[in-house]
Amino acid sequence: MAEMTIKGEYLRGIIKDNPTFGLVLGLCPTLAVTTSVENAIGMAGATLFVLMGSNIMVSALRKHIPPITRLPMFIIIICTFVTVIDMVMEAYTPPLYKALGIFIPLIVVNCIIIGRAEAYANRNTVKFSIVDALGIGTGFLLVLVIIGAIRELLGTGMIVLFGLHVISIPINPATFMILPGGAFMTIGVLMAMVNYGRIRKLREV
């Protein structure tokens, strides 16, 4: 097995093990909160916080958690961090908290987090687990922001980020993109494009 480097592990989380296109995990929040870039950033931030906390705790405790009870332990660790971020966001960013709705408590059952705890943090040192959480978190953020940007731009004709007009295009807004159907279509098209790139790469090799 190749030597693990910090940079390599970080990039692996973004590209090869990208939570949405590589591992196909955590689709529910990916689709539900990407009606705007702002929500996408908020959701990815909350997920990154929980992922980071759970990866650190699990890898630090990995020698003390008996294998047979590891899943309930992971869930309790994850729950703790979700409760923390839930209360922090309710107190300091009420509009964002309202927009994300039930998807903040639902981070508990986001397969990305328990998947990383089981597949990575349970086997690696704290240092690499932090890098892994950062990598996967960045990958998740990128995907959410791309989907959010596409949907917000086509659905409302502009992107508004924290009160600032970032970009606007002169089109007739297609409300369809903001509706649930738009989310399914966007991710379908993106996934087909990723697959197309992969198939071409394989053919070249």
């Binding site: 196909v24 279509m185 991710i187 379908g188 996934m191 087909a192 697959n195 198939i199």
Partner: peptide, 10 residues
């Protein structure tokens, strides 16, 4: 490239 998941999404 559309086989599988993308198709299901459509």
């Amino acid at each position: 490239s559309i086989q599988g998941l993308p198709h299901a999404f459509f």
